[in-house]
Structure formats: C-alpha cells, structure tokens
Design a protein around this nucleic acid. Structure first.
Lengths: 250, 250
DNA sequence: TGATATATCTTGTCATAATAAGTAGTACCC
DNA sequence: GGGTACTACTTATTATGACAAGATATATCA
C-alpha cells in the first residue's frame, strides 16, 4: 500500500510529514535546492514521495514556519536566502539551532552532580529550598572551538535519567522532548553582558576580561511547569543571539 | 449549504479558519473560556460552527502558535495562563519598558544629522545605497545615570519630522505609532557582547573595556516594511534584557 | 480487592477530492 | 502591434472520511 519511494520509511514512529520535512531540509542545506525560486511544486512532491497533498503541505508549512522556505500564492515555494535570520523567537537548544543551520556541534560534560537547591534555584524550578537537584556543566564546541559554557539545573529525577544519556552529541532539549516526552512551552530569558573571569577564560579559551554574553534561561513545559534552568555563557566574539519579536497587540 | 451558525460569515473573503480563530480568541480574552482545562473539544467546535475538522484544527493550531492555547494528546485543548505571561517577547522601546516598571528616563540627543546610506544601512532600511537617511544618536539616562547609547537610522522623511520632536522625553516608538500613525509589527534583534571603546566609555561613564550589551534592532511596520534600524549599546552592569519566547511546535 | 480488559473520550496523522484564486504565458481578435 | 481572453500552471481553502494513539473511566474477571 505504502509506496516507499524516496526513502520514506512509513513504518517509522516518526510522522510522514516530519520525515519529508527532514529530507527537504537536508536538500536545502546541502544545496540540492538552491536559494530563491527552487523547490518542486506540491504535486511534484506528491508524486516523488507518494504521499497525499496534505502531508506535503504540512511539511512545507513547517519549513516555512522555520523560515527555510517561503511561498508565493500562485507561483510556488521558494528557498529562503540562507540569511539565517530564522529562529523567530523560537526556543531552541544551542545544538538544535546550530544543526538547523548546518553546523556540527559537540559538547563536553565537565561535571554532573547533585546538590541542594539554593534559594534562587528552588524558586526558579519551583522546588523546596534544600531539595536535591542536578547540575550539569557542559562546554559546547562549534568546529572544535569552544563557544559556550552551559550550566543546567534540572530536578533530581530528570538529572538521574540524563546521566545515562549521550550529552556530548545530543541536545538536552531534544532528549527531554523526544525521549522523555516532555512538551516544552515557553522560556524566560534574561540577557546581559559580563566579563570573562579566570574560569570562563580558561574554558572558553579567551582572555580574562573578554566580553561574555550571559543568558539566564528558565524553560517551562507546555503546561507551564518549570523544567530546566540554565546559565549560558557565550563568547561575545563568536556568537550572536538572533531573534525576532513582535509588537504586542492583544 | 453553508450553515451560518455562530456568526461565521461564509461569504467573507476571510478564510473560515481565520474567522473561527478570531471568535475563539475573543472568547479566551473575554473569559468565556477560562485559563487551564477549558476549550470545547474539536468535535464540539465542529458541531458548534458547522465546519469540518480540518478547519477547526487549523484555527486551534494557529491559536497554539500564538501561545493562547496548548494541546495535550488524548486529553484536550487548554487555554494558556493569560495575563502577564502573554507579553512574550513584546517589542517596546526602552522608555516604554522602563516607564511600565515605574522608572523615569531621559534622553540626550548628541547628534541628529543626515548622511548617505552605506551598504548595510541601505540593505536594512531597503533604500538605495547612497540615498539620504537620518541618523540620531542619543544617550539614555535612568536616574541620572547613563544607561545606553542609541544610534538610530530612519528614512530621510521620518528623520526630518523627528527633528521637530521632543526626543529627550518621548520614545521614538511612541511618536511613530501615536503621532505618525505607523503600525509597528515585528523586529529583528541581534544581541552580542562587546567591550566599551573610548567613545562608549566616555558617554556611558564606564571604564574602557567594560562589558557592553550590543543590540542591533531592525523594526518593521505591520506591513513588513523596515522603518527603524538601531544599534543599542547598553551598559552590561546596569541593564538586563528580559524576554519570553516559545517553543515552536507544529 | 486488585489487576486487567474494554469502551470511549480526546488529539494526531493521512488520504482523496473539489473549488478558489493568484500568476504567467499564449493565442486570438481588432 | 496591442490589448484581451483563455489556459495551464501554481498555492489556498475547505470538506469528508478513516485509522492511530494517548488518556481515562468503567466494567470485568481472577
């Protein structure tokens, strides 16, 4: 029944439209579809993948939301300029964001321990002060250069499970979502500029006193419970945080 | 054939799912559907509006993207906590943001001139390279302490009008919206950490080499034309940029 | 009683199909 | 030659129908 054309694995638990989306994303990133004007029409894709229109449209619609393509009514679907002004206020892990732009990242876990929540962490994670929480420190690399130090706090139970995961290659966000079934919702960010102290300087291979982008991020599940509290220290010279925000109407 | 139940105007040029989305949004805002657990099921909405499931799902999906509702597979669709949390990544000027927190701000215009757009500015403001644009430099104070240097680029015509305004006490955003009738839409932000050079150090009364939060902001009107391009240099020790973002699902 | 099975809610995914509407090229008529 | 109408593309919208899968309460059986 299911014509497995073009390497779509229909028995996979991953939705068809997601598989197609990933295939198309790959083709955009590797240049099969060049910027501007490209992309086969919906009916071409229907024939190529042997799926229905609704599936193709959902895949293309998702890519459009991610900013990789845009559509013009009556003309077709086009590949966006790789300009990278994507990530419109989208909550992404570092690895996710880089991977979606075609970069490879690596993390090095420098510590993973349990400690007692202080007042701030208890408040943020909505646990009692003194309760045990997990702290994970990772240095993240992009093209072998250190980019950031991530200090992550999660509830004890989550931390225990994460201890068994391959944090060097996988994003915590993706593990939480795909493996643990958490549905991530909003996040609160707080951004400021600081100077590198000796520890940061050593880990990120910059001079002491170099500019550091310090981001505090509290991530909530879809039902608004805090799940993940992080301090991210980005090298100021190597990373820019881009986002798109809207003027609040409503 | 089209059962115009519940005031859906089927002959309108507005898509059905958009009409339904607006009706549901209205009900969420006016409290017909209260926070958490509410929202009729999809089949209820199908019967109530007399439309197909795909239409209801598109309406709910859009509302989910806007953050007003969230879904739980197998359980239902829920209204997100409204109020305060709704201001996810709201675009506002510095003065606005501070005023809403009860602080008073003051700006000092240190220069206001016209110049020829270089390549970057021309690209951002979507004008021809070499075209005349206005540049406004302001130092912003909070409690008599300098907080930021704002370098603003706007088209020549807007700059000429702004020259007559009281920029010391009024936000450019508010002038554009309230006096000039522009409707502001999205903005693209780019945030990075830099070190203060001698000019910044003098203007912001910090040491040379102090951490500076550098924000590049391109603001669009509601119909997506670039209107205002700014570089904002915030003192790292005196300001934090807070926002709330969402995880893009669907 | 307690564990299991079942029925029935819900949302998620996918197929097929019809009509509308925007775009652009072509053929036709004046 | 130039304007108009037609046609053949495209995406946009909506409908109907089916089955999958998560959640939950109920009923059943050991």
């Amino acid at each position: 029944m299911k014509p497995d054309k073009d390497s779509v694995i229909s028995m996979s638990p991953v939705p068809l439209y997601t598989q197609i989306k990933e295939i198309l994303r790959e083709r955009i990133l590797n240049g099969t579809y060049q910027a501007h004007e490209q992309m086969p029409s919906e009916s071409d894709l229907i024939k190529a993948f042997g799926v229905s229109r609704i599936t193709v449209r959902q895949a293309l619609g998702d890519l459009q939301k991610e900013g990789l393509v845009f559509k013009i009514h009556g003309k077709g679907t086009y590949v966006s300029k790789p300009k990278a002004f994507q990530s419109l206020a989208k909550l992404q892990g570092f690895g996710e964001a880089m991977a979606s732009m075609g970069y490879e990242t690596l993390s090095r876990v420098i510590s993973h321990k349990e400690l007692l929540a202080d007042k701030v962490i208890a408040l943020k994670l909505d646990v009692a002060e003194g309760e045990v929480v997990a702290e994970i420190r990772r240095v993240r690399y992009l093209n072998r250069s250190p980019i950031s130090l991530d200090v992550t706090y999660v509830p004890k139970s989550v931390g225990e499970r994460l201890a068994k995961e391959d944090l060097a290659h996988r994003d915590i966000f993706l593990i939480l979502e795909n493996d643990y079934g958490y549905s991530l919702g909003q996040a609160e960010l707080q951004i400021e500029a600081v100077l590198a102290d000796d520890i940061l300087a050593r880990l990120l291979q910059v001079e002491e006193g170099a500019p550091i982008l310090r981001i505090e991020r509290l991530t909530f599940t879809a039902d608004n419970r805090p799940l993940d509290y992080e301090y991210l220290y980005y090298r100021g010279d190597a990373f820019q945080y881009r986002l798109r925000i809207e003027r609040g109407h409503l």
